[in-house]
């Protein structure tokens, strides 16, 4: 993508931005409805229903909800543990809502962290995520290898005293590519992931494998390449002794020569960014 292409694509970017802000709107709406006793399953269903009512028919992945120490993926060994459980929300508990709706063929993947009532530990984690957001976009602009950036994020987390919890995601990814998805009448899911999106990811993986890149941004050798132009859903996830916090949003990477244009966050009007701006 050249910068000319960026302008040309801005209509497309608008599509992505629209679904991303819709998803964050959903997260805020559902978060406002959470109360003591609500289970993860109920919270996930609230997200699903809220988005379905607004026209979402397909998913990159179905909505997740994690409460309490599950926000830090405490004791997670197998991917099935990501799915919502019957854990009940209690006062002061941290929670994370994570959803990836497909709307009009555009995909978003977002993560929203909050707590039921004050939780100073999670507030601290959220505040410290700001440095990660800056670090990631800066190093992508420098065209550092994705694996190196991953390690730098890791080092920053360790310096802050946190554990890297995105390591628990499949392939330990801090980000993955998202793309447009064909709208179909039937939208089956497989282990919580939309089959259309999985298809896109798989085809990217196959093409990428041939050309030496991967749609998964991981700590492994297959991510030892410069950032690939496209849309990346980036999700640094901090954990600190039973409390977790993350954000997830789309980073646009282009092949523009202008550093500012070569990588930028799709939207800066998001809850966590506003939070930092307000200095909380």
């Amino acid at each position: 993508m050249t910068s000319a292409v960026v302008r040309e694509l801005s209509a497309e970017l608008r599509g992505f931005r629209e679904v991303q802000s819709l998803a964050y709107e959903c997260a805020e709406a559902v978060a406002a409805r959470l109360e003591p006793g609500v289970t993860e399953r109920e919270a996930a269903r609230m997200q699903r229903e809220w988005l379905r009512e607004r026209g979402v028919r397909d998913w990159f992945h179905l909505p997740f909800a994690w409460f309490g120490d599950r926000t830090a993926f405490a004791g997670f060994r197998i991917p099935l543990q990501f799915f919502p459980t019957n854990r009940k929300l209690e006062a002061g508990m941290p929670f994370i809502l994570d959803m990836a709706p497909v709307y009009k063929g555009y995909t978003a993947d977002i993560g929203y962290s909050g707590s039921l009532g004050p939780n100073p530990v999670q507030d601290k984690l959220l505040a410290d995520l700001e440095a990660h957001r800056e670090l990631i976009v800066r190093e992508v602009r420098e065209r550092r290898s994705l694996r190196e950036i991953y390690e730098d994020v890791d080092r920053l987390m360790v310096r802050q005293g946190y554990a890297n919890r995105h390591r628990a995601y499949p392939f330990g990814v801090i980000a993955h590519k998202v793309d447009r998805v064909k709208e179909r009448r039937l939208t089956p899911t497989l282990f919580g992931f939309g089959t259309q999106s999985l298809k896109g990811l798989a085809s990217d993986a196959i093409h990428g494998h041939r050309d030496g890149w991967s749609p998964l941004w991981s700590p492994y050798k297959f991510s030892d390449h410069p950032p690939k132009p496209g849309l990346w859903a980036v999700e640094p996830h901090l954990g600190f002794r039973g409390t977790g916090a993350k954000f997830e949003e789309i980073l646009v990477v282009t092949d523009s020569k202008d550093p500012e244009q070569s990588a930028f966050w799709l939207d800066d009007d998001l809850p966590h960014v506003r939070r930092w701006a307000e200095g909380i």
Binding site: P120, V121, K124, R159, Q160, G161, F240, R241
Partner: peptide, 9 residues
């Protein structure tokens, strides 16, 4: 940093 976080928890 350690001292600060220790007080938080």
């Amino acid at each position: 940093r350690t001292a600060e976080m220790a007080q938080l928890i």
